[in-house]
């Protein structure tokens, strides 16, 4: 089973995308989408991505909720910072954080979360020293950014994938 369907979730997602693009739920389109999804999962085998598994689905939901709330809050904060930047210049700067995550996929997920949040941008990650360089738009509350990233994202990711 695992041999014939190497990445079932990827195949399913590709099929859903195919159906959404075609805007139909007919049998023919479902069969075509399933064929496309399974054949593209076969292509994915040649890339040999490192696999990451988790069994705690409710933690994923909690992390997603946390990210949504943080992104919304950060959106408002960045809007305020931009609008008042004429009167009060924004103090931005780099911060460096030690990352203890080992799994590559969870580091990639952390990068996407941090960059999708408007207030923070992922600049560089040194895989030898495991130091992450971030740029923060509003650095006024300086040391709390590191704590926030550790408690909000790093700890749940660690609990999820390791």
């Amino acid at each position: 089973m695992r041999y014939w369907f190497p990445y079932p979730l990827l195949s399913f997602a590709l099929m859903v995308f195919w159906l959404l693009i075609n805007q139909s739920l007919s049998i023919a389109q479902i069969l075509l989408g399933a064929a496309l999804g399974i054949s593209h999962a076969w292509l994915m085998v040649n890339l040999r991505p490192s696999k990451t598994h988790t069994k705690k689905a409710w933690l994923v939901a909690r992390l997603a909720g946390q990210v949504t709330v943080d992104v919304a809050r950060s959106n408002l904060a960045v809007m305020r910072a931009i609008l008042r930047s004429k009167r009060r210049p924004v103090r931005s700067g780099f911060i460096a954080i030690d990352i203890t995550l080992r799994d590559e996929n969870s580091i990639a997920l952390l990068a996407c979360i941090l960059t999708a949040t408007p207030g923070t941008a992922w600049i560089e990650f040194d895989s030898q020293t495991r130091v992450l360089l971030l740029h923060v738009l509003d650095i006024e509350n300086g040391p709390t950014w590191a704590d926030l990233i550790r408690t909000h994202y790093e700890a749940p990711l660690k609990e999820l994938f390791e």
């Binding site: 959106n75 408007p118 600049i123």
Partner: peptide, 19 residues
């Protein structure tokens, strides 16, 4: 337009892209 350094301008398009 308004932010002064490149790295702080890097944050601006995320607003349009997410919200």
């Amino acid at each position: 337009l308004r932010l002064k350094s490149f790295y702080s301008r890097l944050h601006a398009p995320t607003l349009g892209a997410s919200a």
